[in-house]
Amino acid sequence: MGKMSVDLCGIELENPVIPASGTFGFGYEFAELYDINRLGTFSFKGTTLYPRFGNPTPRIAETPAGMLNAVGLQNPGVEKVIAEELPKLRRVFSKKVMANVSGFSEEEYEKTAALLDKEEIVGWIELNVSCPNVHGGGMSFGTDPDRAARVTERVKRAVKKPLIVKLSPNVTDVAEIARACEAAGADGISLINTLMGMRIDPGTRRPILGNVTGGLSGPAVFPVALRMVWQVYEAVKIPVVGMGGVTSAEDAIEMILAGATAVEVGAANLTDPMASLKIVEDLPRVMEKYGIDSLADVKGAAHHG
């Protein structure tokens, strides 16, 4: 059997499959269905300094080959995450988890990340500077290279664990932002967050989503995500975590060939709760099919003649 393990910023992952933030809760819903220790790791729900209710419903709309969401970072706030969610997670998960952090000011990002950084179970901080569903925060940090660099630099000083900055696809030049984050001290880049979109109900003549706009994800975005992973891999030396529309082991391999060290799986978990596990289970077969002995060895292989 081929070698599935990969190194993500100094921590070994048994396999490169990582359920993406916002589609896997704090893990324990899925632990009722299968042993979530079989995953590489997972990224938990975007956490902010204070509790957030999020946006009014409807928060979900269907699209061809995907979905829009405008959840708006609903979470109980970092204190409750540490006091209530992480203890529940520890009962079902013995690996390191990726802590997804969001905020509305540099200070908020810094404080939230610093608190989560102290938690034993946290392996990486994933800094979400790319949420399109909140106003005055999230994505506004990730669409400007200077702001992205500033928040990266500030959080990097406050944490000891590897810092992965999660980028938005809603930019003209994603490579420029990735380079700015790398220069500011990021240990890794993950991408893509969702693409801004909307739907209108012709019956009511109104936008379907309570927030008007939402973020597109699912198979519809896969080629866009793959292209951006390709560009960022060429732009930086730090590891890249690829995501956007991954639903199969084949998709995961494409991401790795484009330059991803590991792969996150988002919307697929929502339509098939077993999706991430199925990818883990299917990888050996697909690796054999394409003559891949080690995933780490074929990382970025599509870039070389």
Partner: peptide
Amino acid sequence: EERMGCGFGACMGCTIETASGPKRVCR
């Protein structure tokens, strides 16, 4: 009823405010 992303509590797509805080309609 609410529009749902997952139906089993993972996505926070269906949350409403209640007397005892935010609750997911699906879960």
